[in-house]
Amino acid sequence: MAGESKGWDRNQMAARAAQELRDGMYVNLGIGIPTLVANYIPEGISVTLQSENGMLGMGPFPFEGEEDPDLINAGKQTITELPQTAYFDSATSFAMIRGGKIAMAILGAMEVSETGDLANWMIPGKLVKGMGGAMDLVAGVGRVVVVMDHTSKHGESKVLKACTLPLTGKAVVNRIITNLGVLDVVPGGLKIVVLADGVTEAELRAATEATILG
């Protein structure tokens, strides 16, 4: 049945995405479910979070009364620094993004295609707020992992042969994590990496418009 919530919930998707992290990585987490990934960093793994407004080593939210207007993340939320924190200007920040120094970005998506196209910034006819740093991130970082619901509220697949919405980047996505499982973008289509708990391969295939190999 379309529209039923199946497989992983938001926190389980974030926990699965956290398994992508490797010790020593510099990582950029997008807004939404990707932000939750920071709560599930595996024990013994140390990663440095980049905030593209100009910070490496992003710490947790401050305690009440300790908010600093000069210390925010890319979502404009108040945050804190860590012992390894470094600050820099926006041009330097995007130089490290564009220059491929950030190992991975974990981002949300509205649609993703079987060739790795990503749409996550604009719905024509609706309020357009802007792409922020998303286009720079997907074009520049070493690896792009998207975390998203597999289908819309109406049960339509968001994992498509070709995106219908304006693109954020073309052929940029490496791995797709949805409530139904994990898929890799490979030559010729998508490859199933793992199914979410309680989801069958037939269910995943039925919910996917994109070509799934094998």
Binding site: E52, S90, F94, R98, A139, G140
Partner: peptide
């Protein structure tokens, strides 16, 4: 794009009239 805007400013200030980027 945010990084393109930042680099457009940096380039302008550094006497660089244009630059190539993969972004977009």
């Amino acid at each position: 794009p945010q990084g393109t805007l930042a680099e457009r400013m940096r380039a302008g200030g550094a006497g660089i009239p244009g630059f190539y980027t993969k972004t977009g």
